[in-house]
Design a protein around this nucleic acid. Structure first.
Lengths: 338, 338
DNA sequence: CTGAAAGCGCTAACAG
DNA sequence: CTGTTAGCGCTTTCAG
């Protein structure tokens, strides 16, 4: 692979001249420039990003941590992050945290090893404390879909509680009282937040929360199916179901179809959704939309601002940090007559 | 960020000693090692992967080109590639080719800029010729799910034609004669291969291909829905449908549900599937399985073998390169009585 | 406008 | 067993 030196000798100039021309710094005689450009073309020369990184002490890389690449959700996130990074000509380094704090730590270590200029963390297992102490280090990072006290200026967040509440209130407004809920895994903060919203909505409408109407899932499709099954087994009557994510709702819908339970005649459905699964199901499901795409873009913008600010505060930039839920009503909620 | 020099001075030894200890080369006095380890720990030192790359002339990175991160399919691929790369402690660089040869070229350029040791290409828009000429360059690469004449030793391929044929033969074996087909976008080679399999199966059974029973989709969900719609509008009777991918089948299923067309009583269904969508639908759909995960792993293994071989042939390694289709029969194909 | 020289953080002979 | 030296490919003063 040709190096800058090869180009220089072929063009009959010094390496530093080539370097300047590549980087568009300074000004040159037209024929010098031409000679160099010809040499570069002839040798099919491309500067080594790595050598450049070392010389400039800036890697031009940014990291993104997700839990898993699979499942559609993270693809949306990654796609947006990449697009946004492309605009600044930065390289994207991705890593999976799998399902543990250790996995996430390991991912961050890799970002450091590569001297990433910053990273976006969709962290689920690192504690608030650990994240706060990480903030003491010089490398900037942004938390995507998380809010940790003290780190608000690095957080792109979404009000999961309010979103869930909105969904359930919609059900209530349509006359439903016995509303079942499939929650996410108990340990996860987003699960808790959504569940809280469910309960808040009920309570504020004076409906007593029936714990037997709440089944814990794990955000996977199958757990939605099983949840509905157990709901029917416990023979607690319900007219509506709220699912804390779309995958579980998919499983639930499968159960309903299999058992010839009509949507929305026999059961009304509303779900969290981020990747648009709800709109591609039959019938099209009502949802509260979780705008992960927009949030991902905002995260990168915030990160770039932080990198540019080099440790100083970034108050001047206007980037939306707290995203709001949006209710999309479709055909899966029936109005109950009193 | 601490450098190897800082560690060295703190430990009171030379940089090269530190380097050796990090890389486990040579042997040292116990207390030297301890001093160095303490210094590293104290400074929270991590060697710079970039500087290392430059010094060793090997970046420790591998590239992966996909068309888009979104959609689930590529997530599966990426996940496997990352896992496999992790085992060799290599960094993964991903890039999206979007939907053009230029996009793919640009992606490869980035791999070169970073001096990736090799890359896996899920290329759809680069011509065979261009790929062959790329093979003249020193950087090894592997083609995932593609077969280009002359580059067989770099190809991890799947027999799409045979897979489609298998699916359609299954339908025929169950007594179906009027078999509709939703194809992929006409320009794509995998589409053509699958369509060919469909036609072969019919022809070999002496069934005349009815072009009005074949509708072109674009591998997206909505196009499956639309395809079925147009199929019914053209009022060509059919008892079975074969879809060239799972996303389009999803759209089709939605149409059937919406129009109360029972599966499999009124229509039998079989689809291509790679990410397992078919098994999570109601009813569980019969499919020919496209083992993209296994293929992705094989691609990385082959790439690593090529990298290790440094330009020499890699005949000794036993890596499956041509994957075979597998028919998974579930509940969506009804046997027609004669 | 361009060359010379030093240096980024690390590794790799080569001595000793 | 460990220090010296040179160099990876590029950028960046500093001269001229």
């Amino acid at each position: 692979m040709a190096s800058i030196k090869d180009v220089a000798t072929l063009a009959g100039v010094h390496r530093s001249t080539v370097s300047r021309i590549i980087n568009g710094e300074g000004t040159f005689r037209a024929d010098t420039r031409r000679k160099v450009e010809c040499a570069m073309a002839e040798l099919n020369y491309r500067p080594s990003a790595i050598a450049r990184s070392l010389a400039t002490a800036s890697s031009n890389m940014a990291g993104l941590l997700v839990t898993f690449y699979t499942g559609g959700f993270f693809g949306e996130m990654m796609g947006q992050v990449q697009e946004e990074l492309d605009r600044s000509n930065k390289f994207l380094i991705t890593a999976q945290g799998h399902l543990s704090a250790d996995g996430e730590r390991e991912a961050i270590r890799r970002f450091h090893d590569l001297r990433c200029e910053g990273y976006v963390l969709n962290s689920r297992y690192l504690s608030d404390d650990e994240l706060r102490s990480l903030a003491g280090e010089p490398t900037p990072f942004v938390l995507l879909d998380r809010i940790v006290p003290g780190l608000e200026d690095r957080c792109i967040s979404f009000d999961h509680t309010k979103a869930a509440k909105l969904a359930v209130q919609h059900l209530i407004a349509n006359g439903h009282q016995n509303i079942a809920c499939i929650t996410g895994p108990a340990g996860r903060s987003s699960s808790q937040a959504r569940y809280l919203g469910y309960m808040d909505a009920l309570r504020e409408s004076g409906i007593v929360v029936n714990p037997r109407l709440c089944v814990e899932g794990n955000y996977e499709r199958e757990s939605g199916y099983l949840a509905v099954q157990s709901l029917y087994q416990s023979s607690q009557p319900f007219t509506a179901l709220f699912s804390c994510n779309e995958e579980m709702m998919l499983g639930a819908v499968q159960y309903f179809h299999e058992h010839k339970i009509n949507i929305p005649d026999q059961v009304s459905l509303i779900s969290f959704d981020s990747v648009g699964l709800c709109s591609s199901l039959y019938p099209m499901l009502s949802e509260v939309h979780f705008p992960i795409r927009d949030m991902a873009r905002a995260a990168v913008q915030l990160l770039m601002a932080q990198i540019a600010a080099k440790g100083n505060a970034v108050n001047d930039v206007v980037i939306e940090r707290r995203f709001k839920p949006e209710l999309i009503d479709r055909l899966s909620v029936r109005a109950l007559k009193k």
